[in-house]
């Protein structure tokens, strides 16, 4: 079911509709990185082997850095003096603009890798285009992030192919992970009103076009991994306009607790 596309929870800025569109686009970019980094952070010390523990933490560190860049820029654009930290720690669930994909919980490392892979592949396609954004701020951040994400996508692709093909058990785990998270895929490349406005302004590329490339690459990789693309899954949308699953509230409660208990303190 597609939720209403109107988005009333956004803070509107004084500078008119173009600024609102840019602000919203930046929150979406930043929140995806933030929520995924938060999920990655809890694996540190618990991953299946040491090399993997270290490698995943590197991905997390890149994503935290990208979060800082996107959200700092968002704060500047908004013009109300909010920093990246203010935006990360003092917004509530409905104000978060991340896609549903990144907020999905992973009880199993197969889910972690599959979620990461789907995100990386899409993220890489998006960032490549963002390097040509009409907005120079977006261009600059994308140019730095795209190198990091090229590596993320490379690594998670390698893992998905190997684990999908690997043992019976690893194959089953990866197929289960794919099946259970598939409902989040379409949202990544389905533009809503805000996306379309940003595309019209040249800030964002056409998400539909990106979707075609992304889904093509995805099918190829899944085939190499002996994994079957799920069919007949009811796709869900809504994360990027603030309609999240229940899990996000817990994730934010944990992430924001210290700032909320001691508002205004320096850390």
């Amino acid at each position: 079911m597609r939720p209403s596309q109107t988005d009333n929870t956004l803070t509107t800025s004084a500078d008119g509709p173009d600024t609102d569109v840019l602000f919203c686009a930046l929150l979406r970019l930043g929140d995806n990185c933030l929520i995924l980094a938060q999920q990655i952070g809890k694996w540190c010390g618990h991953a299946p082997d040491l090399e993997e523990d270290i490698a995943l933490a590197n991905v997390g560190l890149d994503l935290i850095g990208q979060t800082q860049m996107w959200l700092n820029y968002a704060g500047e654009v908004e013009g109300k003096g909010r920093s990246a930290d203010d935006l990360a720690f003092f917004r509530d669930t409905r104000e978060f603009r991340n896609a549903l994909l990144v907020e999905q919980r992973d009880e199993d490392y197969g889910g972690t890798i599959m979620r990461q892979f789907l995100f990386d592949l899409w993220h890489f396609n998006l960032l490549q285009h963002l390097c040509q954004s009409s907005d120079s701020g977006i261009q600059e951040i994308a140019a730095k992030a795209v190198k990091e994400v090229a590596y993320h996508a490379d690594r998670s692709t390698d893992l998905v192919i190997r684990l999908g093909d690997g043992s019976d058990e690893s194959h089953r785990k990866m197929q289960d992970a794919l099946d259970s998270i598939w409902f989040c895929v379409e949202e990544l490349h389905s533009p809503d009103r805000m996306d379309e406005a940003a595309t019209d302004l040249g800030m964002l590329p056409d998400l539909v076009k990106i979707g075609v490339d992304f889904r093509g690459q995805l099918s190829n990789i899944l085939a190499k991994a002996n994994l079957t693309e799920p069919s007949d899954v009811a796709m869900r949308h809504g994360g990027k306009s603030g309609l999240h699953g229940e899990g996000l509230g817990y994730l934010l409660a944990e992430m924001q607790s210290l700032q909320r208990i001691h508002p205004g303190a320096q850390w």
Binding site: P48, D49, E52, Y109, L163, D165, S170
Partner: peptide
């Protein structure tokens, strides 16, 4: 919990 991951990569 990580054994399947290590074994899966080795199996590939």
């Amino acid at each position: 919990d990580g054994r399947w991951f290590r074994d899966g990569l080795a199996a590939h």
